[in-house]
Design a protein around this nucleic acid. Sequence first.
DNA 1: CTGTTAGCGCTTTCAT
DNA 2: ATGAAAGCGCTAACAG
Lengths: 343, 343
Amino acid sequence: MATIKDVAARAGVAPSTVSYVLTGSRRISDRTRDAVHAAIAELGYHPRASARSLRGARTDVLVLAVPRKPGRYRAVDGRFAIEISDAARAHGYDVLMMTEPDGVDGLRRIVRSKLADAAVLMAVRERDPRIETVLELGFPTALLGHGDEPGLPWVDLDWEAAVRFAVRRTVEAGHRHVVFLASADHEIDARRGYALHGLRGARDAARETGADVRVHPSTGAEERLGGLLRAALTARPAPTAMVVQHLVLLPRLLEEVAALGLRVPEDLAVVLVGSLPDDPVAEPLPRIELPVCRMSREVVRLAVESVGAASGAPVGPGHARQLIAPRMEPDRPVPPPPTRRPG
Amino acid sequence: MATIKDVAARAGVAPSTVSYVLTGSRRISDRTRDAVHAAIAELGYHPRASARSLRGARTDVLVLAVPRKPGRYRAVDGRFAIEISDAARAHGYDVLMMTEPDGVDGLRRIVRSKLADAAVLMAVRERDPRIETVLELGFPTALLGHGDEPGLPWVDLDWEAAVRFAVRRTVEAGHRHVVFLASADHEIDARRGYALHGLRGARDAARETGADVRVHPSTGAEERLGGLLRAALTARPAPTAMVVQHLVLLPRLLEEVAALGLRVPEDLAVVLVGSLPDDPVAEPLPRIELPVCRMSREVVRLAVESVGAASGAPVGPGHARQLIAPRMEPDRPVPPPPTRRPG
DNA sequence: CTGTTAGCGCTTTCAT
DNA sequence: ATGAAAGCGCTAACAG
């Protein structure tokens, strides 16, 4: 395997000159540069990453902290992982996955072995222990999702506004009795930002609209979903709409609704908050999608900018927090409630 | 940041001794080892990955080649990515994602910069250009999926047997007219191994069982799915069962079936091949699941073993090919066809 | 059982 | 506009 010395010898220049041609950190005459490029092409030379990062300060790698409860897989995580990897390449970075169950240990290991220049933390929770870790290590980091932490740049869908918006649109469509199906219990217990913000949005919307908005906790246990839905949907006065943030079991949920004899949307309008783009289950329903691509691009940008900022001025808190405004898919308005009292 | 020299100084030994303690490649007295460990703990020392891999031959990183058509996301890819990352850690490896649209360029770049010790290629196709690339570069590689290539270890669900099995079980349940919905056209055009093997399985099953098995190409275009299904399900004599390998649009597919006035399973038995574990859409149906965890573990094992084998004996072709036998989920037998001729 | 030392391949002063 | 040389942090001969 060719090294920089081989290239130098072949081009009749010094190794340092080859390096300068590669990094562009010094002006080189056209003649020399051409000779070097020719030698590089002839030898099929490619600089070795480990030598670069041993010498320099950078690895051009981002570490992606994927949340991982063993045996539990969330579709959204895989999707973000791949989109983030894509986005990172656009900045010249590769992405290393960190899926250790204890994210703190995993991050420590990778940071301290200098395998990456910055981290992206997925599915951030309030009082997330990974945040303490990167702050303590002084490691450049951007967050996907946000809790209440200071000092780190983040990007998130404005879940509070999203749920508020979904509820408001539902009320505007004429619904007076609305069920809000919150994120799964275990997500709330884990203090995931999006789950907590969604809850707040529902409560705010109830106050703002004056409508009857019943906030229902949800469950990750498939077998309990049926009972939960029956209780929610058969309560009196009967709800005519359901705003759903708990999307993991959506297909099952729709089955249960059908089993209760309710047609969607004639008897019950179902509005989704935070569905994944191109999800065929979500597609026919009115919804606010999770802007996966945009969030991935933004969080990578923030992480990459933190790399530079780490050795210089701290990141300004202003533009480093991206709360993305929710947007209803325009082709799916919330259908009106059934007209029970004709005339 | 502490280096091996700092540790050595603090422990009152030579740097090499610290190295030997760390790598275990030389016997060290208990006293010395304890002193070194104490110094390591006090300084919070962690070896730098770039220095290690510059010096040694290994990076302890696997590169994962994720197939990526820009704008198209397959849920199975994200799932495998995360499971593979998990499995790799069990062998002491980290996983670097490679999502470049041109997998060949991306692999070249990563291999030649020595960022990884071995590759895992996802969603292998027949005559996959990435295979030629890793062979030409002499890079240790394991494949997820298989085409017709020689010389590289792989693991795959036996899709041919899986479809054959699903069809046979369907026929055994009493069905005489069965529709097989193949993978999407574009997957077949891309010569993905699983799509082609599935097709062969369907044809074999038709021959073996003597039943009327109608192989239907499928489509990735959501808007054409309805027409396709109508044609397939309203043909005479009417099919009473459908074996589905095209799962991306499964929810949509079930909606279309319902729209045709067919109840599942009373009017039409639906059997899935290759569904993802814990998919709530698939769960109520008889199915053969894709063993994601097992495949991930196996492909990582093969990749890791190739690292050693690269500098030594070639990988024996025997145990290096893992064709996983299909298994029906035991709790979901194929329901019988409707009894149209009572008596 | 431990220390000394060369060098992996690169970048970047310092020197011309 | 280019070279020479030091050294990033580590491992593995070689030498006691």
